[in-house]
Simulated scan of single mutants.
Amino acid sequence: MSEPTPLARGPVAVSPAVVRDGWEVDARIATGALTLSDESPLAKVHVRAPFDGAGRAALGVGFGRTARADLGTGEVLVVGSGPGEWLVLGAPNTAGALRASIEQRLAGTGEFTTVLDLTHGRALLRLQGAAAAAVLAGVCAIDFGDAVTPNGAALRTSLAGVVTDIVRDDRQGVPSYLLHVERSSGQYLADTLLDAGGPSGLEVTGFRGLA
């Protein structure tokens, strides 16, 4: 008798649950215009390299910005999350291949770099909808207007008292924000956003992925 395949679980409680790509994810499908989803199954690879060196050119994006790219494992989102820091998000179960691909890409730069798989140690939420900026503004002092934080912007700040990477990643013209935090803060942040977004009709929906 074969052993059952172990399931991976994100930090946010799901009910009802369904299995996708080996992960237990929320089975709900929201119908409203403002949604919150747990995107923790996405591969999360953290890169450190000199702020303005060859590694930056190899990754194709600078501090505070994002770009879609194919680094050898399919389309990924490359985020300039800090000075000399990048967060690369890819499809579920690709973290190992993505890490190896990035290491190979950076090997020829001659610079000291580190590439770490953070997939299971971090939480990733997506808040999406026309009212998403207003919800975030209720728990954060940042100006989320288009003039200050347009699509493709990335920043690190305190969101509801938690250090958070905030990435604006609009989908089909709809404002959408990826929120990357330590795994231990994932449930707290989800609960806080649901409370803040309740008056605006915020609903939980299932895992969406990068597409």
Rank of each mutant, 00 (worst) to 15 (best):
G32N: 12
V25S: 03
W23M: 11
L59W: 01
L34P: 08
L34C: 11
V47R: 04
D38S: 08
A27D: 15
G74R: 08
R48N: 13
R68M: 10
G72E: 08
A67R: 14
V14T: 14
F51V: 15
P50C: 11
A54N: 11
P41G: 10
R20K: 14
P11C: 10
T66H: 01
P11L: 06
L34S: 03
V61E: 00
S15D: 15
T66I: 10
V14M: 08
V45K: 01
D26Y: 05
S15E: 15
A54P: 08
V19N: 11
D21G: 04
F51W: 09
A17Y: 03
F63C: 12
A33Q: 12
G74N: 06
D38A: 05
G55P: 03
L59S: 08
A13T: 14
L36E: 03
K44H: 12
V25C: 13
G64T: 04
T73C: 13
A13P: 06
A17E: 14
V45W: 00
R28E: 11
A58G: 06
A54W: 07
T35R: 12
E39Q: 15
A13R: 15
A30D: 04
G53D: 14
E75I: 06
V79S: 01
G62P: 06
L71A: 08
G80C: 05
G55K: 00
G60T: 09
R48D: 09
L42K: 02
S40A: 13
V19S: 06
G62C: 08
G32Y: 05
F51G: 00
V78W: 02
G80M: 06
F63I: 11
G74Y: 07
T31I: 11
G80D: 02
D70S: 10
A13G: 02
P50R: 07
E75L: 05
R68V: 10
S40F: 03
R20E: 15
G62F: 00
W23C: 10
V12Y: 06
T31F: 07
G60W: 10
G72Y: 06
P50D: 12
E24V: 10
A13L: 14
L42D: 01
A57D: 15
G55R: 00
L42M: 14
V18A: 14
T73I: 14
V78N: 00
A33F: 03
L42R: 04
A17T: 12
R28A: 10
G55Y: 07
P16T: 12
D70R: 10
R68F: 08
V45C: 05
R68N: 09
P41H: 00
A43M: 06
V78R: 03
A43D: 07
A49T: 15
S15W: 11
A30G: 15
S15H: 13
R56C: 07
R68I: 07
A33N: 14
V25W: 14
G55F: 06
W23D: 04
P16K: 11
L34N: 03
